[in-house]
Structure formats: C-alpha cells, structure tokens
Amino acid sequence: MQVVSISSLKGGVGKTSVTMGLASAALAAGIPTLVVDLDPHADATTGLAVRPSGQTDIGRLLKNARRGDLAANTVPSGWVETAAKQSNAGAARLDVAIGSAYSGIYDRPDLGRRDQRRLAALLSRVEGYSLVLIDCPPSLNGLTRIAWTASNKVLLVAEPALFSVAGTERTMRALELFRREFAPELQTAGIVANRVRSTSNEHSFRLGEMKQMFGDLLLSPAIPDQANWQQIQGAAHSVHHWPGDSAQQSSGYFDELLKSVMDSGRMRSRGARR
C-alpha cells in the first residue's frame, strides 16, 4: 500500500485540487484508494461528494488512535456511483476518511513523537487499498508531520510564482530535516507545478527556475490552469467523468501524474542500484 502525502507550505496553490485529480485518476484506473482529509477545512471531503451517515471524522479517530477503527469509519465517495453509471459496470473503490475542524487540535508546532504516529497507527489496521492519498493542511505544523510519519512518499504542490517557489524550497529543506530525524525511509515523490498558464511570461520564467532548482524532482506534466475547474469542483464531480474536451485533457494530465507518483520510488531505487 502506497501512502502519499500531498503537501505545500503555502496555501492557495491547489493542493486539494491535485489530491482530487489524483483520486479521480485512481478511480478511472481501477486502483482501490483511500483519501484521508487531514486539512481542518475538509475541502476534499466536500469535493469528493461524501455523504456521512454517523461515521467518526479523522480528527476524533486520531484522538483515539490506539483503538480507533478507521476502516469502519470511511465513507464511499459519491464519484463511485457516477463512475459506475457511466461505465455500466462496477467502479473501483474510492473511500474517504472525512475531515473536520476537530483535527486542528493536532496542528501544533510542538507535537511530540507519540502524537506524530497517530495516523500511522490507524492506517496499520486498514486493508484493501493500493493507494492512500493524504490531503495535508498548508503548513508544516503537527498535522503535516502526522501525515509524513504515516507516508511512504511526499508530493509537493507549487504554482510557478515567486512566493510559492520559495515556499517549496523551504518545504524541501524541512522535509529533509524531518527525514533525518524521524523517517529515514520517507521519499520525495516529486514536485508538481499546478495552475500553469502557458501565456504567462512570469509562469514560463518560474518554471525554468524550478527546473534549475529542483531538477528531476519537478514532475511532468505540469497541470495547466483550467477554466472550468471551479465548476467541476463546485459540482463535486470527478474530472474524468466531466463532459468536454478540456476535462478530458485534464484527465490525461492527472493520469500521467498518478503514474509518475506511483512509479517514483521504484525509479529512484533502480537508479540507486546502478
């Protein structure tokens, strides 16, 4: 089971949008996936069309991590029903550990080692998924460290803009320090440039800068700014099942990105053996 944290130091770069795009690609590819909505704003829970019916949210499960039953408290994404109707066949498993503001009690800068392991403990008792996507809050406080402790990989999201690129560089340094102290096996899945406008000279310049700064860690493809993305998210809909050529093109970008993320560890392992 691959566990991938989707992180950024700066808010507003589309971290949750990338999480949802990857979830959509996983659903289309038939990959059993769990999305853990660790951001107290719980936007991924809303965007994945979740309809809770008494399940315990992730914040309260973290509080009771020793005995908490994450498997019993996941909720199927509403996307699954739509995908099944459109394909006239059974759809893959896409479940959500629902977010809530309650998880914010762990978003502290002074979180101890024991608290950092809470999500890892919950996930250790979960079976049946090939992929877990953790939508982190836009900070390096306790919830992000909880996510990183539970993860195999971290995917960083950045816009090709000055402050976002600088924030990504700081996040890379923080991730390396965290790896040395707490999680030596944690890998960097890469950096995805999001909301890229091909007509923007500033974006073109910053993309070149990111290639120089991050090298092979900058993943391909970059995700372009899509005019109807807000409409798709507002409808709580999977991009792979939204009509129109623009959505189909975006779906292809996320298919490629998902493959890059899932292959990232194997590629680097082969390179290390050489």
Rank of each mutant, 00 (worst) to 15 (best):
Q233G: 10
A71S: 10
P109V: 14
R274L: 15
V80R: 05
V261G: 01
M267V: 15
G167Q: 11
G167P: 10
G54E: 09
I191A: 03
L38A: 13
Y253D: 05
L111D: 10
L9C: 15
E202G: 06
S17R: 02
A120Q: 14
V154R: 05
N88D: 08
P221C: 07
F182L: 11
R195T: 05
D43L: 08
S264F: 11
A29W: 00
E209F: 07
G99I: 02
S8F: 03
F205M: 07
G14I: 06
S164H: 03
A92L: 01
F182Y: 13
E185D: 15
Q231V: 12
K63N: 01
V80M: 03
D135N: 10
T46K: 14
Q231D: 15
A91I: 00
R117S: 14
Y129E: 06
P138G: 13
S204W: 03
K15T: 14
S77D: 04
E81S: 10
G167S: 12
A161K: 00
Q55R: 06
L155E: 05
A158I: 04
D110W: 02
S164W: 04
Q249A: 12
A89N: 08
C136F: 09
T188K: 12
L257T: 08
A84C: 07
S87I: 01
H203D: 14
A189D: 13
G215W: 14
V50E: 01
G271W: 08
H240K: 08
P76S: 06
A26W: 02
V126D: 00
V75T: 10
S250G: 11
Y106K: 03
R93W: 01
D107H: 10
G265W: 09
V80H: 00
R67C: 00
R170N: 15
L217S: 13
S151M: 10
G104E: 14
C136Y: 05
G167L: 11
